[in-house]
Design a protein around this nucleic acid. Structure first.
Length: 197
DNA sequence: CCCTGATTCGC
DNA sequence: GCGAATCAGG
């Protein structure tokens, strides 16, 4: 008799990779779904890291790479990423910053699908999102700021010709994470940086 | 900023 | 074997 009972008890879903899950993983991975998408499909207890890890262990990886392989620049050397150990370490006097809780994904599943748009899932097709075309931001005159009026909390996105007297800055409340307001922050970083060569 | 996969290494 | 943390690229 064999009584090999894995340590998956006590209501602890140790993300046991059952044959079934592995199959699903393989299938979705081969279909071109991203790791995070697969993770979301497998369940909430599965993260994209878990998926990627498993994929590598299974010796999977190359999927839609017929002849062209991306020369993953592998420096071979790693700066040995140390991991935080002492649980009672750190924790200095934090003013009010506090940690940003972001329980986003892993919960439901919708979430805008990233760039990976391959699989011909009928369900996904109807979820295609159409960007809200020209949703420009108009700043009323009384909200516009000159260079000297800027401070740490004003959006520093320039508008107009710097040489013109009509030049002004957005001036809306900027994010803690950057010099721009939410709107312009996305603009600044999300421009046409894709497909650059 | 968002995202992607790749890798390492403590558990 | 597993996956969080981290790295690296887009």
């Amino acid at each position: 008799m064999k009584d090999s009972v894995l340590t998956m008890v006590s209501g602890a879903q140790s993300a046991g990779w059952t044959d079934e899950r592995v199959e699903t993983l393989k299938k979705l991975w081969m279909e071109g779904l991203s790791a995070s998408q697969i993770a979301g499909e497998l369940g909430e207890g599965v993260t994209r890291n878990a998926v990627i890890g498993k994929v590598h262990r299974l010796k999977l990886s190359a999927r839609a790479k017929p002849t062209n392989s991306t020369p993953r620049a592998r420096p071979a050397a790693r700066p040995a990423p140390r991991r935080v150990a002492s649980p009672s370490a750190g924790m200095s006097g934090m003013g009010g910053a506090a940690a940003k809780a972001r329980p986003q994904m892993a919960a439901s599943r919708p979430q805008s699908i990233g760039a990976t748009a391959l699989a011909h899932d009928p369900e996904m097709e109807q979820q295609l999102y159409v960007a809200p075309a020209a949703a420009e931001l108009f700043i009323p005159e009384d909200k516009r700021l000159s260079l000297l009026q800027l401070n740490e909390h004003t959006c520093k996105w320039p508008i107009g010709d710097p040489l013109s007297k009509d030049f002004y800055f957005c001036g809306q409340h900027s994010l803690e994470t950057g010099p721009y307001c939410e709107f312009h922050s996305r603009r600044a970083y999300h421009q046409v940086d894709k497909k650059r060569r």
